[in-house]
């Protein structure tokens, strides 16, 4: 598991204030998620691709991330054309492909990819810690932000503990098979991971308390919104309004 693969960089999008990016991502995503026309969703995809060029991310990583999402969408391409009622596009033996079904699957694919691109370029270019701080300064409940920050840390810890145990098992010639021994071993591994991460979490909590933690994370970066940030926000919000306009005027 790799975390924050896209968060390191020097591009415009990496330097933009996290709060600005959060608001932009929310407004763009909202409009694209609700739109029903091809024009709007294609416009969204175009903006997503534009943001991608601005973000100067490693395109290979982005491609594989998109493939991961599209592997779920592939199921829609299998089911929708066959099951959605509408005019026949073509008939292959007993199977009829519906025109509307294909159209719907295409629309969903475009919308999903556009939204994922927004998320990768606008949100994944910040670290999770920055996102937590950003959400907090946007007046989201403090507790929710803390939960976000902590789950992020603990996911990493749990993942590491699990792999340490799994490695130890493999070094002792454990080979997963379809038998009770394998199931039992995995159950032990999961159980032990849970116990170990619990203990570790407790010690991390103690260490934090001893260094004066009292329920609030402070950020070392003093965030100020620059002129570039404001211009960026205006452009993104205008884009969102533009999408809504295309959608309503179609």
């Amino acid at each position: 598991m790799t975390f924050e693969k896209f968060s390191q960089g020097e591009s415009l999008l990496h330097r933009t204030d996290t709060r600005v990016k959060l608001v932009s991502a929310i407004s763009l995503t909202l409009v694209i998620a609700l739109c029903q026309s091809f024009y709007t969703s294609l416009a969204g995809l175009t903006v997503g691709l534009l943001l991608l060029t601005f973000s100067r991310l490693n395109l290979r990583f982005v491609f594989w991330r998109l493939m991961l999402v599209n592997s779920f969408i592939a199921f829609l391409w299998i089911t929708l054309p066959l099951t959605y009622p509408g005019d026949a596009l073509c008939v292959v033996g007993p199977v009829t492909l519906s025109k509307q079904g294909v159209a719907l699957a295409a629309l969903i694919s475009i919308k999903a990819n556009a939204i994922i691109l927004f998320f990768i370029t606008l949100l994944a270019t910040s670290t999770v810690v920055d996102l937590g701080h950003g959400l907090e300064s946007l007046r989201l409940p403090k507790k929710l932000c803390l939960i976000l920050l902590f789950s992020y840390r603990y996911i990493f810890v749990v993942h590491q503990e699990y792999h340490r145990l799994l490695r130890a098992a493999k070094l002792r010639c454990f080979k997963p098979r379809t038998n009770l021994h394998t199931y039992r071993t995995y159950a032990y591994l999961f159980g032990m991971t849970l116990v170990k991460s619990w203990n570790r979490a407790e010690r991390v909590g103690q260490a934090m308390m001893l260094r004066g933690f009292h329920g609030r994370f402070y950020s070392l970066e003093e965030k100020t919104v620059t002129k570039v940030d404001v211009i960026f926000l205006i452009i993104m919000i205008s884009a969102a309004i533009g999408f809504a306009y295309i959608e309503l005027m179609k």
Binding site: M208, R211, G212, F213, H214, Y218, S219, L220, E221, E222
Partner: peptide
């Protein structure tokens, strides 16, 4: 910097 921040030091 985590400790000093908790004790009320400014980020700088």
């Amino acid at each position: 910097a985590f400790g000093p921040l908790n004790l009320g030091a400014s980020p700088a």
